[in-house]
């Protein structure tokens, strides 16, 4: 049986899918997005956080059976609450085999995979095929800029997007709006174009920049260095999506 590292299990997670929902945050991420608001999800191993209310360990190992059991205890409520479970991170694809094993043992529940799309293709396809809804991040369509702001080129993301387009799983493309970086006309148009190619796309979510993004860095012994003007308003323009005939919401 596989073991995964989880840094949080959050109940009543409003933003991670439909209905009453519990989100599992898997620890470890291959990207280093400059705007990441969840730095405790970056490192794959458990780590000691030094928070204002004392130190605590972030990340604990779960066997797939243990995690499934814990989630199954809420299954009835989540189902009648028109919701289910979301696997997020960090990056769940880094622990794709573990997540798949949890799914094997999960009661029938609506499952969302919330991913950056950056990860092994086989792992992505296995999970994306099995879940009920995929939340797929598209950050920057220009690979150079993607590398500059996330530490990696976007090729694996775009490859997985193509795979996703070939599946029947409904999906939502999510775009974090970072002032002057992802909210540019060119980037949003390119994303709209890519989104239009995904047949089972439900909608595109434009996520407003989280001004509290830097909040948890000190606790993780890291420094938050935004390379943009945080006070600058984002430009959540939807016309590129409207033009491409893609449903869009601003969250």
């Amino acid at each position: 049986m596989r073991t995964g590292i989880v840094f949080d299990i959050r109940e009543f997670s409003i933003h991670d899918g439909p209905g009453l929902r519990t989100t599992v945050f898997l620890k470890g991420c291959p990207l280093r997005c400059a705007w990441c608001h969840n730095p405790e999800g970056l490192m794959a191993e458990p780590q000691l956080l030094d928070t204002p209310s004392g130190t605590r360990t972030s990340g604990r190992p779960y066997t797939s059976a243990e995690l499934a059991r814990q989630l199954n205890r809420q299954a009835d409520l989540l189902r009648t609450g028109e919701g289910g479970v979301t696997f997020s991170g960090g990056e769940p694809l880094l622990q794709a085999a573990f997540v798949a094993e949890v799914l094997d043992q999960l009661e029938p529940l609506h499952v969302v995979l919330d991913t950056s799309g950056f990860g092994d293709e086989a792992g992505f396809c296995t999970l994306a095929e099995r879940v009920d809804l995929v939340y797929f991040d598209l950050k920057l369509m220009d690979s150079g800029l993607h590398r500059r702001y996330t530490g990696q080129g976007n090729e694996p993301v775009l490859r997985n997007l193509k795979h996703l387009a070939a599946l029947t799983t409904p999906c939502v493309i999510r775009v974090p709006l970072v002032p002057g970086i992802t909210d540019t006309e060119a980037n949003l148009s390119a994303i709209a174009g890519a989104a239009a190619e995904v047949p089972h796309l439900v909608r595109v979510d434009l996520l407003r920049y989280n001004r509290a993004a830097g909040g948890k860095y000190a606790s993780c012994g890291m420094e938050f260095r935004p390379q943009w003007d945080e006070s600058q308003p984002v430009r959540p323009t939807t016309h590129a999506f409207d033009a491409a005939g893609v449903a869009v919401t601003i969250c």
């Binding site: 009543f12 409003i14 933003h15 439909p18 209905g19 009453l20 409520l77 009648t80 609450g81 028109e82 919701g83 919401t249 969250c251």
Partner: peptide, 22 residues
Amino acid sequence: AVFGDGQALRKVALLVRSFATL
């Protein structure tokens, strides 16, 4: 912060319903 989401009111309603269901 919960109420920043457009679906939040309905989700709170679902939470209240689960209080009764339980």
